[in-house]
Design a protein around this nucleic acid. Structure first.
Length: 592
RNA sequence: GGCCCAAUAGCUCAGUUGGUUAGAGCGCCAGCCUGUCACGCUGGAGGUCGAGGGUUCAAGUCCCUUUUGGGUCGCCA
């Protein structure tokens, strides 16, 4: 059994001791990073969340502590009392912050023993994620994970401080709410009291924050857990955290302005990076035309070019068909990639097929010739026009997709990203922010045969487009905006509808009967009757923000206890079966 | 739901054309060592080759099924 503290108090953190502390008697507590046993002399590297300090055990200093340290192993939890001593110059270790000093141990308490951990607690070992997740509490001892979670804490701290200073009020909203249609699949919670009825866990506090505006809270924020029962990705977890913000008596400009100020302050305070204001802005349409995506990575160029006009009279069937079907022909220029081997070019064809493209056409531009599998179908002037449009020089590789716009954009956007990485065009130290604005309000859902809200059903249309709502719904632009950082959508929001009439029209366009709309959103429509201020807001994906700001590849690395791709917690083994009794109480019969 | 990758010692991996007793590094255990800091030296222990089935004289290796982890398309207002 471990020893008790018995009144012993920690005086210093391991990583914070410096030459200033030389001569002091200190008490440090932490975990054994490593033991180096030299027989008559034992070194212990003691670790806490601030860093590592070397402790020296010798029978000359304390024979009792020296005897005791013989049994100490990795990850034992120790309390050490000793004297801080300056190291002789040849013994200084420049690799650690406390390398100029060490502690001569006078006494040692073994607070807790440890079995040998299943993997070493250090950053350089690359352990499989499954094992890290099973022993997450050990994984979190690693300095990089400690740093990630501390950065995440710092982010919320700076954001809270900014919002508090600017008159925002933090309000909590419930986790057990009413299931509403639209959007992601809900996580459901059975009601014990009402057999057959269910609560839903919130996909976001959207409606509740709008109701808080109607309540007059004016400026609200919350760091809120959100839950969506959908398939997972590197940047998607079933539960994630939003920085949720809503303001009254504002228009789009007001929301954008205060939010970019907040983000600039966040990057200054957290990473000491100056973010130039205002952010760049692209309309949704422009983002698509130039980058093929509504979340472009602006750290490199390689923009898309429309080639449709150049090949409008082309005899090449692939082009002809695409244009005939109201699609387009577009391309990008992968600089200096012309000599890519055939095998790799063929892989690119497979790559674009995952995005629905039927094929990919390439043109290799060399000093004295231009090679392309389609050269016999393309007129010389067409090839010349394409080369000129894409500013292609000798050594460049032109990649062209012809199809419906949607597919062309998607395929080229992913090609652009792939080549950005492959050609090393992305400066990893850069942070390129932008707003994407003027999103379409609606899109047509082929499966459901109806219009669905692109953002959510409460998003306001642009004033000048309101009249198109019933006539040409797809042309209506929304007062909606996304904040994009390095190709990642880190936040998104909108100005909301605050009139019952407009909201009713919106529901109608979405194909909800008045009855159904009332059944689902009656509480909101009722609330609109009693004076709703103009309002709008934004929600940030805190996990994604923290992922980027820590340089992580997945949001799992900035979440203390994440789940696997199959939504399982490897540490606790959730989800798990429950007892018959529990099910019975909830009036649930399992049908497998 | 589809596609792709992976699974061999505690960890990270190698394992040839199917062929003897499955290896390495780190870690672990024991001994020695007073200036190491990824300490060193000597010795040792440690394997359901993810699971099940099949082909074969013979399977870690080939085939089928399946489980788990990761990536991705669909999905995620």
């Amino acid at each position: 059994m471990g020893e008790q503290l018995n009144g012993l108090k920690r005086t210093h953190m391991c990583g914070e001791l410096t030459v200033e502390d030389v001569g002091k008697s200190v008490v440090v507590m932490g975990w054994v990073q490593r033991r180096r046993d030299h027989g008559g002399l034992v070194f212990i590297d003691l670790r806490d969340r601030t860093g590592i300090v070397q402790v020296v055990f010798s029978s000359n200093t304390s024979s009792e502590a020296f005897e005791k340290v013989q049994s100490v192993r990795s990850e034992y939890v120790l309390a050490i009392e000793g004297k801080v001593v300056k190291r002789t110059p040849e013994n200084i270790n420049p690799k650690i912050a406390t390398g100029e000093i060490e502690i001569y141990a006078d006494s040692l308490k073994i607070l807790s023993k440890s079995e040998t951990p299943p993997f070493p607690i250090e950053d350089k070992s690359n352990v499989s994620e499954a094992i890290r997740l099973k022993y997450r509490y050990l994984d979190l001892r690693r300095p990089s994970m400690q740093k990630n979670l501390m950065t995440r804490f710092k982010i919320t701290q700076v954001v809270r401080d900014f919002l508090n200073r600017n008159g925002f009020i933090e309000v909590e909203t419930p986790l057990l709410i009413k299931s509403t249609p639209e959007g992601a699949r809900d996580y459901l919670v059975p009601s014990r009291i009402y057999p057959g009825k269910f609560y839903a866990l919130p996909q976001s506090p959207q409606l509740l924050k709008q109701l808080l505006m109607i309540s007059g809270f004016d400026r609200y924020y919350q760091i809120a857990k959100c839950l969506r029962d959908e398939d997972l990705r590197a940047d998607r977890q079933p539960e994630f955290t939003q920085i949720d913000i809503e303001m009254s008596f504002v228009e789009e400009e007001d929301v954008l302005e205060i939010n970019e100020k907040m983000i600039a302050e966040l990057f200054k305070e957290t990473l000491n990076i100056e973010v130039p204001l205002p952010f760049k802005r692209l309309t949704y349409q422009e983002a698509l035309e130039r980058y093929g995506t509504d979340k472009p990575d602006l750290r490199f160029g390689m923009e898309l070019r429309d080639l449709s006009d150049i090949v409008s009279q082309s005899e090449f069937n692939v082009f002809k068909n695409a244009l005939k079907n109201n699609g387009s022909v577009r391309g990008i220029n992968a600089k200096s990639a012309a000599s890519m081997p055939r095998r790799q070019l063929d892989e690119l064809v497979e790559f674009v097929k995952t995005y629905g493209a039927k094929g990919l056409l390439w043109i290799q531009v060399f000093e004295d010739e231009i090679k392309s599998p389609a050269s016999k179908f393309l007129k010389e002037e067409e090839v010349r026009g394409i080369v000129r449009r894409l500013d292609a020089k000798a050594g460049d590789l032109i990649l062209i997709v012809a199809d419906k716009d949607e597919i062309v954009f998607d395929a080229l956007a992913h090609l652009r990203l792939a080549f950005g990485k492959r050609l090393n065009l992305i400066d990893e130290s850069k942070y390129e922010f932008l707003w994407v604005v003027d999103f379409p309000l609606l899109e047509y859902d082929e499966k459901e045969k109806r219009y669905v809200a692109r953002h959510h059903p409460f998003t306001a249309p642009k004033d000048e487009d309101i009249d198109l709502l019933e006539k040409e719904p797809l042309k209506v632009r929304a007062k909606a905006y996304d904040m994009v950082l390095n190709g990642v959508e880190i936040g998104g929001g909108s100005i909301r509808i605050h009139s019952s009439d407009l909201q009713k029209r919106m529901f109608k366009v979405l194909g909800f009967s008045e009855e159904k709309a009332w059944e689902r959103f009656g509480f909101l429509m009722e609330a609109f009757k009693y004076g709703a201020p103009p309002h709008g807001g934004i929600a940030y994906g805190l996990d994604r923000l923290a992922m980027i700001m820590t340089g992580s590849d997945t949001i799992r690395d900035v979440i203390a206890f994440p789940k696997t791709q199959n939504a399982v917690c490897l540490m606790t083994d959730a989800p798990s079966e429950v007892s018959e009794e529990q099910l019975k109480e909830l009036h649930i019969r399992v049908d497998l």
